[in-house]
Amino acid sequence: MNPTAVYAKHPDYVQRDVAGECILVPVRRSLTDANSIYVLNETGAALWQRFDGAHTVENICTSFMDEYDVAPSQLHQDVDTLLADLLSIQAIQEVAVAHGPTG
């Protein structure tokens, strides 16, 4: 996991909250890709909401630990796994962050 990476939700997915569950539905894709929907549990949805294209993974983990009772090592491992899962279905994408001049 790259702690300085920034991820944003992919526009090909829409999120719907149904019966207390966060559901990701692929849209604008070929039907072969659209034959599944994806469900996130409560912590998965809370992390998904934070992939806003502005905050780094490290920022997200820090704010998440303020809210949830979790050890840093456990959270980093879980975020790493979730990122891999979301990237594999192209639900998120890494965004380039412009760095200002350092001089």
Partner: peptide
């Protein structure tokens, strides 16, 4: 504020509609 209980994040695939 007490912290919320933590469970590992999970992504489930639901094949389909």
């Amino acid at each position: 504020t007490p912290k919320k209980p933590y469970t590992s994040p999970q992504l489930y695939r639901v094949p389909l509609q």
